[in-house]
């Protein structure tokens, strides 16, 4: 499109009465031609209302908070390594202390871990993933120790 766009074409553009291909061609012209872009903008009856809207104030301290947050090292996969290692250790402990009957305790451990994940789902948004993994690992460890205690007790009773 050479030269400037006619008022008629701009009016049909503004009211959506051009085909997609024509509208796209007009848009390419408007992107490159400030006078035509200004005229097209003025055709919109709400344009003056848009310009009446004041910009919202930026919350105080936000820019400083952004710079401080960006300066902190981002979370990496290593941050997750310790909780994962803790969970694996807890699982290994369950298998180690269960002696000759690992199946029952492993099943119980899986159920407890499932319940912990369910609880984790509930509190999603309140806690970070790292914290959730830590909670799951701790729950698994505590429950396995408790299960081991109960197993020992039941063996003594029998």
């Amino acid at each position: 499109m050479k030269g400037h766009l006619s008022d008629d074409l701009l009016e049909r553009f503004d009211t959506g009465r051009l085909s997609r291909a024509e509208a796209a061609r007009v848009a390419v012209h408007l992107d490159a031609c400030s006078p035509c872009a200004g005229r097209a903008h003025a055709l919109d009856p709400l344009a003056s209302v848009f310009s009446a809207v004041e910009d919202p104030p930026v919350p105080e301290g936000l820019e400083r908070a952004i710079l401080e947050a960006a300066a902190r090292p981002p979370r990496t996969e290593m941050d997750l390594a310790w909780p994962v290692a803790g969970a694996l250790l807890a699982a290994a402990a369950v298998l180690f202390v269960s002696g000759g009957d690992p199946t029952g305790l492993a099943t119980a451990g899986a159920r407890i871990a499932g319940a912990a994940l369910l609880v984790g789902d509930v509190v999603t948004g309140l806690c970070s993933p790292v914290f959730l993994l830590f909670v799951c690992a701790t729950t698994g460890l505590v429950s396995s120790v408790a299960a081991f205690g109960l197993l020992g007790l039941s063996r003594e009773v029998s």
Binding site: G16, A24, A27
Partner: peptide, 19 residues
């Protein structure tokens, strides 16, 4: 680009109604 234009027209039209 054609889809963008189409969506802008629809959005403007809906906005005018709501306004």
């Amino acid at each position: 680009l054609g889809t963008v234009m189409n969506r802008i027209f629809r959005a403007r039209s809906r906005l005018r109604e709501l306004y």
